[in-house]
């Protein structure tokens, strides 16, 4: 299996001299199976550059798994050029939102409206299919098996585990591990903690022994203190997950938009120093780099 990051930034694209090295596009990850089946995780702005490389392979079959419908994870969909070209087959997977009861097709249709985009949904020439995925129910793409799990975020968010040819990757999408909402002196504290612990075990099991764990690590601990409940993880929460799951490589992604290459690297050096013996490799997700597992 091969992985390539096309977007590593959280919330909003951040082009400019300070993000040249790690990249300023929002979330998009390309995964290729050994048979070259194409799986795309999220359709942030990074998907546009990915699309350029696909033009020479057409017609293509792409399987796009959306973790959640926040803007930074879907805004590249109308710019995924293969959707305009006949004979391409594009299948978009996602969950049903329990608040709106909307399926994943809305992620595209909502953008293709007169006020927001010049082309109508009916004018897309590729064959586009939508599939609703359910937590714990595996989906097959070629020799790959993709299994979603619900991970807490301000909107329904799926983490996806991809198992293929004896290798595995897990991507959290945007994920803030749930904290106890009660104070230790509250009656509800212990019980709520038992729910938190049970969910944690479920999450760790879903990412158990993966070759690559890709986590939302938007914040440092200091930043997180004022950003609890915003729906994002920290570098340390990522390390904690990777340790518990015995992952082999840990990729930090969803870089905070104001984070420059220099500050990312400073944080990274600190992490290496403070975590000398994790038993897994710590890596910053970087646009355009080929990763073989």
């Amino acid at each position: 299996m091969k992985i390539k990051f096309w977007g590593v930034r959280g919330s909003i694209p951040t082009p400019g001299p300070n993000t040249v090295k790690y990249g300023g596009n929002t979330t998009c990850i390309e995964i290729r199976t050994n048979d070259n089946d194409l799986i795309i995780l999220d359709a942030g702005t990074g998907i546009h550059a990915l699309a350029q490389t696909l033009l020479k392979e057409m017609p293509i079959q792409a399987h796009i798994f959306i973790t959640h419908t926040h803007w930074d994870h879907i805004q590249g969909l109308p710019f995924f050029i293969p959707i305009f070209i006949p004979n391409n087959q594009i299948k978009i997977y996602g969950g049903i939102d329990p608040v709106t009861n909307e399926t994943i097709n809305r992620a595209l249709s909502v953008q293709l409206q007169y006020s927001f985009f010049p082309i109508r949904e009916a004018q897309l020439n590729a064959r586009i299919e939508y599939a609703t995925v359910k937590p714990g129910e595996p989906v097959k793409v070629g020799s790959a098996t993709i299994t979603p799990i619900v991970l807490s975020h301000p909107v329904l968010n799926f983490g996806y585990r991809i198992d293929c040819d004896g290798q595995s990757v897990f991507f959290t999408g945007d994920y803030e591990p749930q904290l106890n909402i009660y104070d230790p002196e509250d009656d509800e504290y212990t019980e709520f903690q038992s729910f938190v612990d049970a969910k944690w075990d479920e999450v760790v099991l879903a990412m158990k022994d993966v070759d690559a764990l890709i986590v939302d690590s938007s914040y440092t601990n200091e930043e997180y203190a004022s950003k609890q409940g915003w729906g994002h993880g920290t570098y340390d929460s990522g390390i904690k997950l990777a340790t518990a799951a015995k992952a082999k490589k840990l990729f930090f992604t969803h870089h905070e938009p104001t984070r420059s290459d220099a500050s990312l690297e400073a944080i990274y050096q600190n992490l290496l120093q403070n975590n000398p013996a994790t038993g897994f490799e710590l890596l910053l997700a970087q646009e355009g780099v080929d990763i073989s597992l």
Partner: peptide
């Protein structure tokens, strides 16, 4: 409470608001 842990507070809050 378990629903909150499972899916996150904001989704629960928005169902309640609905």
């Amino acid at each position: 409470q378990r629903a909150v842990v499972h899916i996150g507070l904001n989704t629960i809050k928005n169902i309640a608001l609905g």
